[in-house]
Amino acid sequence: MTFSRTARRSLAAVSALGLGLTLAACSSEDETTPAGSSSPTAADKNITIGVHSGWDEGIAVSHLFKVMLEDDGYEVQAETADAGIVYTGLAGGDYDVNFDMWLPITHADYLKKYEDDLEQLGVWYDDAKLTIAVNENAPISSLAELAENADAFGNRIVGIESGAGLTRITQDEAIPTYGLEDMEFVISSTPAMLAELKSQTEAGENVAVTLWRPHWAYDEYPIRDLEDPEGVMGGAEEIHTVGRDGFSADHPDVAAMIKAFTLNDEQLFSLENIMFNENQGENPDESVRQWLEANPTFVDDLKTAAGLS
């Protein structure tokens, strides 16, 4: 049997009242809690993170916070669902926080629908975008140069799934804008694209693939994005953290950490690489601990930035 967050809080309040009366009866009058004590209750230490299924950066950051908070004594659940379900759950109070709202475009409809029931807690990454990437030592730097150098790339661009927004934008925007109609656009799958990227870069060959930031491939392979002078792939988006209404009041220290939290490309790509490439997505909490060992000052630096140490 499951309870809504409201029901769980009511039950917790009743239980806490009963426990408080029992303790009061058993303690002497001079054994009182000092005025102004902010010692958290058990309910204050329970946090549920809503995680978008299949969104690697959100999974990685959610488990990063899960591990950090558990080390501070919190009980944390990371629950995976489709983005629409996560935002509905946040608005209804069934989740406390989500680390993966892409704005101003990708998740704008959800923000418009639920903004009165959500708290904006900060931006932790500001260069999320769709790209066409090439090997680091490729002979071109811009999509505007790709058509006249198509032979150097085997006359093809390797894409991902047919239903992906990245595939549609490449087909409908990038290819006609930059005159790439004579190149073969290979629509395959994300694993197939990554396999091509791996084999071609290891062989020292040129390769052009559809990709997106953030992604662990930028940490694993020697690649870079082609410039997009016409802006057809879309501008960079920000990744926001959002909480249910009242989250900051209920968890002020956690909210302070979230508001101070950012990751640069090197940090994010390396975390994703460990979690999804080296460890194949298995045991993400252990992947986080592996990453924290390689970044030993990260937690302390974050707490200092949040004013918690």
Rank of each mutant, 00 (worst) to 15 (best):
I59T: 08
I59M: 09
I59K: 04
A60Q: 10
A60R: 07
S62I: 09
H63W: 13
L64W: 04
M68I: 13
M68V: 14
D71C: 06
D71T: 06
D72L: 14
G73H: 11
Y74E: 05
A78W: 05
E79K: 04
T80H: 07
T80I: 15
A81V: 01
D82N: 09
A83L: 00
G84M: 10
G84K: 14
G84I: 06
G89V: 00
L90N: 06
L90F: 05
L90G: 05
G92W: 01
G93Q: 08
Y95V: 01
Y95I: 03
V97T: 02
F99M: 15
F99H: 15
F99Y: 09
D100F: 06
W102A: 07
P104G: 01
T106P: 00
T106L: 07
H107F: 03
D109Q: 10
D109L: 14
D109M: 12
Y110S: 10
K112T: 11
K112R: 08
E115S: 14
E115F: 07
E119C: 13
E119I: 05
Q120A: 10
L121C: 07
G122I: 06
G122D: 09
G122R: 00
V123M: 00
V123H: 00
W124D: 00
Y125S: 00
I132C: 06
A133I: 05
A133P: 08
N135K: 06
E136Y: 09
E136M: 15
A138H: 04
I140Q: 08
S141P: 07
S141F: 13
S142V: 09
L143H: 15
L143S: 07
L143K: 12
L143V: 09
A144P: 04
E145Q: 14
E145L: 09
L146G: 03
L146T: 02
N149I: 03
A150L: 04
A150P: 05
A150E: 10
A152K: 14
A152Y: 07
G154Y: 02
R156K: 15
R156D: 02
R156S: 11
I157R: 07
I157S: 15
G159K: 07
I160S: 14
S162K: 10
G165Q: 03
L166M: 11
T167C: 12
T167H: 09
T167S: 13
T170G: 03
E173C: 13
E173Q: 13
E173L: 15
E173N: 12
A174N: 05
I175G: 04
L180R: 01
E181W: 08
E181I: 11
D182R: 06
D182T: 12
V186L: 11
V186N: 08
I187W: 01
S189H: 09
S189T: 13
T190G: 14
P191D: 12
P191E: 05
A192P: 02
A192F: 13
M193V: 03
